[in-house]
Design a protein around this nucleic acid. Structure first.
Lengths: 339, 339
DNA sequence: TTGTAAGCGTTATCAC
DNA sequence: GTGATAACGCTTACAA
């Protein structure tokens, strides 16, 4: 039995396949009347031209891949929301790949993607440490890539990042002005672009105020809650900080849990500030001072940029867009609190 | 110039296209040695068979569509994480569509999907009120659909839901036992399956304890923060409740903001419980009592179910799986608090 | 404005 | 184990 397809439609309408095909395009020089005839039958049978037949012939897919380290995370889910919003408005399909911060998975995904599967890629990097040849290969296949937030410095591509260094410098000074002298910086991966910029901002601010000489107050954490809980616990025991700067939201959450369990008063005993996309930071106990990235806007920007790269392949679009994060001061960094 | 393709590879290796093609499959009766020869050249050139060429010929796509009302939301992002985890393990690509709770968008998406684009669909429903013919059409094309959380009762399909009615009943009794007599139920959409089940659980518990006769304490809210803020504000003024049951996390957040601004003490003046997937509910001020759905597990389950439907098309897989939500009691419903 | 026919890159079938 | 060939469903010159 024949599948429903442009061929069968053609037979039913007694026109040629091409005529049916033309009905689905804008400027295809088809008589309005025939077009309507085709489209109405198509609607009745709820027919849409085969995606794969069409893609194969036209050599484009109207599909974009989004590759991210995690998805269940306020920053990324907001960014993806922005990406999806723009792309679906332009009739692109959105393919999602989650790497779990695993560089090998990233390489795997991107390599299989590299078969005409998508017209472009939006990604946030998972691993600085590997060879990024698989990304250069995309260039050869003319598949544009746009990075957001976590970028690879060795890859030339449009990037959407935030002012991590500056804002980290400012956040550190905010803690210092609030009276902290022993500020610890919690980081998950110093090797990755953002981890590094944030750390440098912190270090330079501390050095400026002559509060440290070395990196002994930079604490390496992980993505696992239990591990972080004990790492930060040890840090409190050993370093006895009066301020904590969390480079990632997750670390602030571990810190809060620790403070509840140990009955440490924020901000009296310890002040905390964190990068965070948490909308309910003001509802925490105490309200958390945050450095908030424009997650949604970064997604919107990255998607628009990619579309531009696809539409105007000749033009050099390799620009690094820096969007501004905002520091929002709340309870957790308040200088003195009357209880 | 010839594109890199199985044809070109064949020429380079002086074998036929078929041989090259066979190298990429498991049991294709190809000599191990030739297979390696092909694969190593392919690796060198970083070649993967064209996704679209292959899909067209094989009439399957190894792609699943995930259709959800929103993405930047704890419940959905956790569920999607689970879905993605299973699907990528089985080498499926994941296409994401966000409807913004708009039934027309949902119908649009699903209709364009219905062109062999995907092998199956996992969805959480956006709109009860429309005609769901576009979903029945999928059946005709033999594209399996699995629902999770928000389902359409008029569609026969495997579904993954939670015990909304029972747990809402229990949550209401919990408020009653904590001393509430005037409990208000906040809902976004009573028409949708979960909104309705939750409301019925609440109503029946209230009736059992003879605390209400009618639905006057069911308050219709929206998805917009400002609107909810004023709706709930009015509700506090007019109904003067001593307990609030939020059917959606978003509503609890609006309630908390309102209580801060109006200096209403939770739980002394007002007790609050809410459906919520918020991991940091214990860190709120005060810690929020939640009804927590197994979001991740629902995603895992839905994805496994869909794969089963694809692998075993003959078998009747139309089952409704009920996973259990959990009530976690915290500060916000505590009976008496010494301040 | 419409029809004819070639071809997109694969894989399945059949013959060798 | 391998090769030739047709076909998947569509779009697009080109011809009418």
């Amino acid at each position: 039995m024949d599948q429903l397809g442009i061929k069968k439609l053609a037979a039913m309408l007694k026109v040629s396949k091409s005529t049916v095909s033309r009905a689905f395009f804008e400027n295809s020089g088809i008589k309005e009347e025939t077009k309507q005839r085709v489209l109405s039958l198509a609607a009745e049978l709820s027919f849409t031209p085969s995606f794969y037949g069409s893609n194969l012939r036209r050599k484009n897919s109207n599909t974009i891949a989004v590759v991210v380290p995690e998805i269940s995370n306020n920053f990324f889910s907001q960014a993806i929301k922005g990406i999806e919003e723009i792309l679906s408005k332009h009739n692109y399909n959105v393919l999602i790949y989650v790497t779990d911060s695993d560089g090998l998975k990233e390489a795997d995904f991107i390599s299989t993607i590299n078969s005409g599967k998508v017209d472009g890629i939006i990604m946030s990097a998972s691993a600085e440490e590997y060879n990024h040849e698989y990304i250069s290969n995309l260039k050869r296949s003319k598949i544009p890539v746009v990075f957001f937030d976590r970028v690879y410095d060795d890859i030339e591509a449009p990037k959407v990042i935030t002012n991590d260094y500056d804002i980290s410098f400012d956040a550190t000074e905010l803690l210092i002005k609030a009276g902290c002298t022993k500020i610890v910086f919690l980081v998950v991966n110093k090797a990755i672009s953002i981890g590094n910029s944030r750390m440098c901002g912190y270090l330079d601010a501390m050095k400026k105020h002559q509060l440290i000489q070395d990196e002994s107050c930079v604490i390496d954490c992980s993505n696992d809650f239990q591990k972080n809980y004990s790492i930060i616990g040890n840090c409190l025991d050993n370093l006895k900080p009066d301020g904590i700067f969390c480079s990632i939201e997750r670390l602030a959450i571990a810190t809060y849990h620790l403070c509840i369990d140990r009955n440490i008063n924020i901000p009296n005993d310890l002040k905390v500030i964190s990068f965070s996309s948490l909308e309910i930071a003001p509802l925490l106990n105490p309200a958390l001072s945050t450095i908030t990235q424009p997650a949604l806007e970064m997604g919107l920007k990255a998607a628009s940029l990619l579309i531009k790269c696809i539409r105007e392949p000749g033009i050099n679009n390799v620009v690094t867009n820096v969007l501004e994060s905002k520091i929002i001061e709340r309870e957790s960094t308040r200088q003195r609190v009357i209880k």
